[in-house]
Design a protein around this nucleic acid. Structure first.
Length: 642
RNA sequence: GCCGAUGUAGCUCAGGGGUAGAGCGUUUCCUUGGUAAGGAAAAGGUCAGGGGUUCAAUUCCCCUCAUUGGCUCCA
């Protein structure tokens, strides 16, 4: 008998007959393992547990504890969902049903039927019923013509659309119970593994992600092998809700929206104002040290400027419509760059002046689609931590590197550990349409950017067709504590606008030369950054950022006057302090201060008043005991240092 | 912009064809207390806005606005 050598993840090698399956291997190890095997990885390819191994291979058996195991499990669950849908709603047309980070979805065309939350229970029960049949997922290779015939007979236009792009010889069907789907696989051995099922939500989703196509109903769901895991997952979702910046923003009175002001136009409450001030002080300090100069520009500009910059043709739809003044169109600025370019151009520049770094917390207005608005993360008015660096080609590398270093410095300050730099490049096919038509410059600047990234040794990914219209960019993706991904900051190279604005400096040879421009906004916008920080810190902001750093809690009205003195003293030291004058008991005041997430509570009563001191309690309950007032102030000043 | 859901007091929510309720918060009074909720009373709502059906609409229907889960988009 012919044998194959199977190498397991721990390096152990075993011999099995040719044609053995991962399931055979699992059975030979232990029955318990075999019961839990969902799929397998053979030489880094995820396959069914029934895959026939015909050559020497590396094998890992995948269970629920493996990411690929979960993905396979959820993918199979999507098939189960589809089977249940066909049973309950004969004639539904199925789109695609992939696994996602948590769970899976299936895109479905219900025809005239309106699928709603009310159908969730019914669907869940049907899925449970079908899961219990322990139906095996059976793989079958089919020819393209047979596949087309099958779906033509079934009348499934979406599957036929998918088949168009598939090559004959690579097409497989999977069948479980009465349901057959076009699918590459792999799948779990049988439906019996699927025990706990929850339909989560529905949404509209365009077929193939194209808004010109029909919108299908997307059903989101999740499944688990155990009920306890489903419960844990649902609890995690609840926890995530508690950290949502929209909830915290309301509870901590950071910002609000008002119908009369308009959608996407946040009003910053005093607590939000304090955060903004803290962030700006920090940014200004760092930028001052980095050789930036601060400028200030108006919120509107004539149409001619945006025609010159080239923004208007590209972004007209997402700018607020123009207002006509004295027969001329003015636009609210959606970006600060053109204003800064004009500031650069205002005075003649020598190569000796470069690099010039112009910084501004500029307020911009973007007419985001109504459906895009999302708390503070997507808004229509935004205060940007903006700056533009004008430098020579020789200076570019160092400048660009410094900007990247600045990003890393900020991440450290805010304890941001999880991030990805996304190097966004142009798509040559879209030159002149989405991207400025200067092919050789694209290639040159992209190479320059890549060089810096490689040199710095930061982790980055390259993506096509994501650049700005005027040059390549680096987007910084960060992940909030609740797993939401954001493009927080961006760092862009611009080789086009200097030409358009006729920006130049006089070089060593007494000739005019174009500067390269770097656009950067490492602290994003106040809106997005504060939204992110609220989630990142779960509302428990570090002292330097906390809108209320200290709250004084007099034990009784008798010590109110002393409490006022304490507040006055702290305010003199630029500490954001306030006092709770309600005639409540200390316990109640402490509770309320805890709920408001104030970092420091100062309890003052008889002994504190006598000793010109305060009893210090930190948020969370740590008791620092009695401290001299000055001693406490020093501590806060030190902690709040930028 | 598109598909779906939601909109009742400052907040979180209950209610339901006969013009409204709770808890928290707020104000006042009592209480003057030592590290996560003391007591009482009061104020507070055109039930998002507009239209329709009805003797009667906050409730049912339609439209608009806003929020929201997604899709598309994001200089």
């Amino acid at each position: 008998m012919n044998l194959v050598t199977i190498t397991l993840p721990d390096g152990a090698q075993r011999e099995y007959p040719v044609g053995c399956t991962p399931m055979d291997v699992a059975l030979s190890i232990s029955e318990g393992l075999a019961r839990n095997v969902l799929a397998a990885k053979v030489d880094d390819k995820v396959v069914d547990a029934s895959f026939e191994i015909t050559q020497n291979s590396n094998l890992s058996l995948l269970t629920w504890n493996d990411t690929d195991g979960k993905q396979t499990y959820w993918h199979s669950s999507a098939h189960l969902l589809a089977e249940a849908l066909e049973a309950l709603f004969p004639g539904v047309k199925l789109g695609i049903g992939p696994p996602i980070q948590y769970g899976f979805y299936y895109d479905v065309d219900f025809g005239d039927y309106k699928f709603t939350d009310a159908d969730f229970d019914k669907l869940e029960s049907k899925m449970r019923e079908l899961a219990k049949t322990n139906s095996a997922f059976v793989r079958q290779e089919v020819s393209k013509s047979d596949a087309i015939t099958y779906f033509e007979e079934k009348g499934d236009p979406y599957k036929l659309d998918l088949l168009k792009d598939l090559e004959d010889g690579s097409i497989t069907f999977y069948q479980q119970g009465n349901f057959t789907d076009l699918c590459r696989g792999p799948h779990i051995p049988h439906t019996g593994h699927i025990k706990s099922i929850k339909i989560l939500s529905t949404a509209g989703a365009y077929w193939r992600g194209d808004e010109k196509n029909k919108q299908l109903t997307r059903i989101y769901a999740i499944t688990f092998p155990k009920k306890s895991e489903l419960d844990a997952h649902l609890e995690m979702l609840e926890e995530a809700k508690k950290r949502d910046h929209r909830k915290l923003g309301k509870e901590l009175e950071i910002y609000t929206f008002d119908d009369d002001v308009g959608p996407g136009l946040p009003l910053w409450l005093p607590n939000g104002g304090a955060m903004i001030e803290a962030l700006e002080s920090y940014a200004k300090k760092v930028e001052r040290e980095g050789g930036y100069e601060r400028v200030k520009s108006p919120h509107i500009a004539r149409e001619s400027m945006y025609l010159k910059s080239g923004h208007l043709p590209y972004y007209k739809d997402s700018m607020y419509p123009p207002m006509e003044i004295d027969g001329v169109n003015y636009y609210l600025k959606a970006m600060n760059c053109p204003h800064h370019h004009k500031i650069f151009a205002a005075t003649p520049k020598s190569y000796r002046d470069l690099p010039i770094r112009l910084a501004e917390y500029g307020t911009c207005y973007r007419y985001e689609q109504s459906g895009e608005l999302f708390g503070l993360m997507r808004v229509r008015s935004l205060q940007m931590n903006d700056a533009h660096i004008y430098c020579t080609e020789a200076q570019f590398e160092e400048e660009f590197q410094n900007v990247n270093a600045l990003y890393l410095k900020h991440f450290e300050k805010f304890g941001i550990e999880k991030y990805v730099m996304r190097f966004s490049k142009h798509d040559p096919a879209r030159l002149g349409e989405k991207y400025i038509d200067m092919p050789e410059l694209w290639i040159k600047t992209e190479a320059m950017v890549r060089k810096v990234l490689d040199k710095m040794g930061v982790n980055y990914v390259e993506v096509e067709d994501e650049a700005a219209f005027y040059g390549p960019k680096i987007d910084i993706q960060v992940y909030s504590a609740i797993g939401r991904e954001f493009t927080l900051a961006t760092n862009q190279v611009d080789f086009a606008q200097a030409e358009r604005f006729d920006l130049f400096f006089i070089n060593e040879k007494n000739e005019k030369e174009r500067p390269i421009i770097i656009h950067r906004a490492p602290l994003s916008t106040h809106e997005r950054f504060i939204g992110f920080l609220l989630e990142h810190y779960a509302g428990r902001l570090p002292v330097w950022l906390a809108p209320k750093q200290v709250i004084v809690l007099p034990i009784s009205d008798k010590y109110a006057a002393y409490g006022d003195e304490v507040v006055k003293f702290l305010k003199k030291h630029d500490i954001r302090a306030s006092i709770d004058h309600r005639s409540e008991k200390a316990g109640k005041k402490i509770r309320d201060a805890e709920v408001s997430k104030t970092p420091y509570m100062l309890i003052v009563g008889e002994k504190e008043a006598e000793a010109n001191s305060v009893s210090v309690r930190m948020h969370g309950g740590t008791d620092l005991g009695l401290m001299e007032l000055q001693q406490f102030a020093d501590r806060i000043i030190d902690e709040a240092k930028l």
